[in-house]
Design a protein around this nucleic acid. Structure first.
Lengths: 216, 216, 216, 216
DNA sequence: GATGAATGAGCGTTCATTCAT
DNA sequence: GATGAATGAACGCTCATTCAT
């Protein structure tokens, strides 16, 4: 009845690609297997994507665009910098915790070459970091975040911590509540490990770090 | 007269492998190119390693063994939990900041499949985490680290943050002082982003974090 | 109102095919490119032609039919055997010299397989040779052509010489007056290279020449 | 016993290629079939040749080099221009008449694209023509060949006639004495079709023809 | 131990052709 | 008649690995 239109096929191919990439890995994934799982002929894939790599890249770009926009909206609604960080963290962990295959593709397959990594960094991560920068500066202006901390360092550290939660989740093979880790991670970031007043500065905080990722 | 030629060749092959893997990526790396750079015949590689994958795995295992032992020693010498975290962070960042090719292999090439990731997790990361656990518990017992924080979460977050520093360093293409980031990162972890007293708990800290990586 | 659209489309497709075959070669020519240049959909081509090969064959048959009939007429009008040979040669060279794309298709693309060659031989070349045979026999009966020469040999030699002029023209990339070569070539054939009386028979002329082309 | 050395394999591959190209045509020929017929693995072909096309081109270049050198030697030994033309024609027809597969490759497969044709023209044919030019000029200086004939035209016409004999031989499917046609063809060229004195000039001989083949 | 010539399995991609609309 | 999205068979080439020397 409903005519299976172009976008239907494209979407089915992408869904199939996520599954196959996640299970086999990008290199071991066979285009013909993706086609089979999508219910189309091998050649049909090439009507929608330039080649195998374009499948991965398109997957990435489209998921990222949607994810980031949703994250932006969600964050806006939160009251104050601390709550915003929490929202972002929850959004990050929820998105990947809800779709294990997608998470595998993002945590593992997309990082198998500096080429992909650089693309990842240049497109998604920069935007993600911009959001974080905004929140951090806001917190510093409001006097609730330590003003001497370099925002780039903070953003990288927070992203790195969350990223590790996702990777750990993937590799655990278990299905616990990944998004539930957002709160303790953010709390850890906000208040630190040390009992206040009990730990002296390890060393004075250095100024800055030079380039952000990909600042080539 | 004849010195252990064997080890000489084996080492030369591993050195060549690091370079080629770093420059081309594991899949695009050609065994014949590694052989050429090592100054041996293609077949000779198979006298020392089972196959191409074994090259990567051996590389990883040997570097890791040395690195972890060194880290363990270095940490021991540090006075108190906070200083020990800093030593570990410095050791981590120094080792990878000093050898860009090796860092590329560890940050990128070794993560291109869940298979490698799992091995990575099972061998190195668990030991690394054990070291961190010890320090964290020591800090908690000493009353300088917040006792309610789950040590697994703290360890993952710290590792994730450092890991992101390395990845960022790799992708930046620049050659700044990576190890110098250890101090600010550890400071951030110890004291947190928030100005003490200014930020309420985002939410109560949850207890569990699920499994550690690789708890399959 | 509606004029024969059908023939219009068919003709446009053939014209497009000549161009694309000439520029890309038969194998590298894409049916879709021919369709595009003809301004029709890919599938439309299959309403007029059985398949890609049929495009080439139809092209060949139709051009040949017209060409040969024209040649026959033109030849008839010529006074005497020598003039007739000249007319044929001029007709041959003019037809191909005026349309470079067509010449490429006839000299190159139609000869890429023994299958096409055989078809070429069986249809066009036999008729062409029949015309030549008639003229040669006429000349021999009239006592102006050497009676001992086997007509098949003469016909093949003349055709081969003209054919080489066309091929040479194609490959030169230049646009000189190909038809103008008809006269000197025919003169060469009629009178020979040797100064009369100065060259003895190299060897006695053999009788038979075996089969004509395609005498399978 | 005798170590099957490198050249042995290379030669076997080329021999197999001639057969397969001749029977199937270049495009339809499968590399794996050539390998099989040569008794080597598919990949072995690529140790000796860059790719499939290089098989054809190498075949051509090597056969041509040998053929042309032999032709040059044979011609030298002949007494006078007329005998030399005959020797060249015999050599040409003999070489191809003796190896039908090779003849098919040279007459058909090597001419399926302007790319190959141009290569053919640039390398072999130019040398062949140079030999002919020498003989023609010698004949003209000696007063036995008509001085007003442009040597390029004569060379092309003679080559074209011989070439057509070979093509005709190939397509006939019969196995007559191709080389035996050399004498009558050369006789025809030397003395012409016309009975001396019986045929007037068709038209005055034009001066020249511009470029030879490939004179782009 | 060392060599490097030989192996051959394995797959991304193209494109002539079809057929539902 | 016309369309063009979809099909899927077909293959050149690479390269990790082996093994005779």
């Amino acid at each position: 009845m409903a005519r299976p239109r172009k976008d239907d096929k494209r979407a089915r191919i992408l869904q199939a690609a996520v599954k196959v990439f996640a299970r086999k890995g990008y290199f071991a994934a066979r285009v013909s297997e993706i086609a089979k799982k999508a219910g189309v002929a091998d050649g049909t894939i090439y009507l929608y994507f330039r080649n195998k790599e374009d499948l991965l890249v398109s997957l990435f770009d489209e998921v990222m665009a949607a994810h980031l926009e949703a994250g932006r909206q969600e964050m806006k609604a939160a009251p104050g910098p601390a709550a915003r960080l929490l929202r972002m963290a929850e959004h990050h962990l929820r998105a990947l915790g809800e779709n294990r295959d997608l998470a595998v593709v993002f945590q593992v397959e997309l990082r198998q070459s500096t080429k992909f990594m650089e693309r990842f960094t240049a497109s998604w991560l920069q935007d993600y970091f911009q959001l974080l920068y905004g929140v951090i500066e806001e917190g510093q202006r409001a006097g609730v975040f330590r003003p001497e901390l370099p925002k780039k360092l903070v953003a990288k550290a927070l992203f790195g911590a969350l990223d590790e939660m996702v990777t750990s989740f993937i590799l655990s093979g278990k299905d616990y509540d990944l998004a539930g880790l957002a709160a303790p991670v953010v709390d850890l970031f906000l208040r630190g490990v040390a009992v206040p007043g009990k730990v002296a500065h390890a060393r004075p905080v250095l100024a800055a770090t030079g380039a952000g990722r990909g600042g080539k």
